[in-house]
Design a protein around this nucleic acid. Structure first.
Lengths: 210, 210
DNA sequence: ACTAGATGTAAACGTTTGCTGACTTAGCCA
DNA sequence: TGGCTAAGTCAGCAAACGTTTACATCTAGT
């Protein structure tokens, strides 16, 4: 679980460390982020304890407070990371490739956990600050999604387009949760190839290509 | 666990009580169910305390243990109620009216809380029993949804249809949560009329009418 | 009217939670 | 090599949690 073989101190100047340094604040931070994202996405905020996260990361509990101030702070950091990831997808993807990109996100159940980053956006912490971050992430992503199909801010009559983009986003997130958290079969065992077809139909129906 | 809830023992012949009887086990049970459903759907299982629920219902905390054995038992009861409601929709609705039915569920943010019953299906309690109930509800509902478009159990090649039905269900639940729990605008303020069009496009794209 | 049992109340129990402060250890440079 | 600081450890606190226990009060049947 945790026992890492002792590693001699390396005077690594530039190269990425092949082995983990025994004390490395940046890496510890990242370990906590990864563990927290998975736990929060799968079990929700309130059901996850800081001791769970610390154990998963193989790190002492007190370091959560040190690096992220509080459990809330850790959650917000996870949310920001998921937001960056999602915005990268909805922003940098050509309009006709969006279904494939969403399918790739949803399908990735692995340790990288793109799917869990999606599920995270559905989890609430009860904290106003975190809720605002999540809402911002979702608004920006849906706006980027809508913009690819012709939506422009304030333009009359294009409000419908934003609404439809948010529904597409909701659909993607719903599928991700039912897959990775609820583990509904056969949805849970479906491969990326199984998902991309229906997702294309779904996205094209909600946001018709111009 | 053996404790069965005490029988209501109301000798009410026919007429519904115009005013609440000062002591009425059946009504107290229902008050707890309603309050719990809303709380669980909006805040999740772990974030909801039994004291919250009891206060919302205007009832003493200890009565949760009396009528539902435990917090878990109350959650399972909520899930069963939501399952009955959902099965009624997916089962009794003509195939071409499914989008309207889903839209009606999602749109209903009121006290009746059809929307919260949908959101509830996305919430996990961490308990194996509750998870099994929820999975059963979702499986049966998606099977009914798929059957309306030609799916038959075990029929080769129709597995795709079940997968698509589950994705449609996931989409509906995702929209419900983003609306009622996350309160994402403009999705949250959209009316039933705003929702039914996109939902029809979505359902028809995933499950083409035969 | 009386009583037994159903219904509701109040207070506390033991556990788990997030978080903190004092402490120890490792890494780095003079 | 010493020593200073960053990084990590440890034990424990106060609050909140679900649940239980002992008690009070209402209702229905006789």
């Amino acid at each position: 679980m945790t026992a890492e073989p002792p590693v001699p101190a390396t005077s690594n100047t530039a190269g990425e460390p092949a082995q983990r340094r025994r004390r490395d604040a940046a890496e510890t931070r990242q370990l906590l982020l990864d563990a927290a994202r998975q736990r929060f996405a799968r079990d929700g905020y309130a059901a996850t304890t800081v001791r769970d996260i610390a154990d998963d990361a193989g790190v002492n509990v007190a370091l959560i407070s040190r690096y992220f101030t509080s459990k809330e702070g850790l959650f917000e950091a996870c949310l920001r990371a998921a937001g960056d990831e999602l915005r990268r997808t909805t922003g940098q993807t050509p309009a006709d490739r969006v279904p494939e990109a969403i399918a790739r996100h949803i399908a990735d159940l692995g340790a990288a956990g793109l799917s869990s980053q999606l599920s995270l956006l559905l989890r609430s912490s009860g904290d106003a600050g975190a809720d605002e971050i999540r809402r911002g992430v979702l608004v920006r992503s849906s706006e980027q999604l809508a913009a690819a199909r012709g939506w422009r801010p304030g333009e009359p009559g294009s409000e419908q387009l934003l609404l439809r983009a948010q529904m597409a986003l909701a659909a993607g997130i719903g599928v991700a949760v039912l897959r990775s958290s609820i583990r509904l079969e056969p949805l849970s065992s479906a491969t990326e190839q199984d998902l991309v077809g229906p997702l294309r139909d779904l996205v094209d129906a909600l946001l018709p290509p111009r």
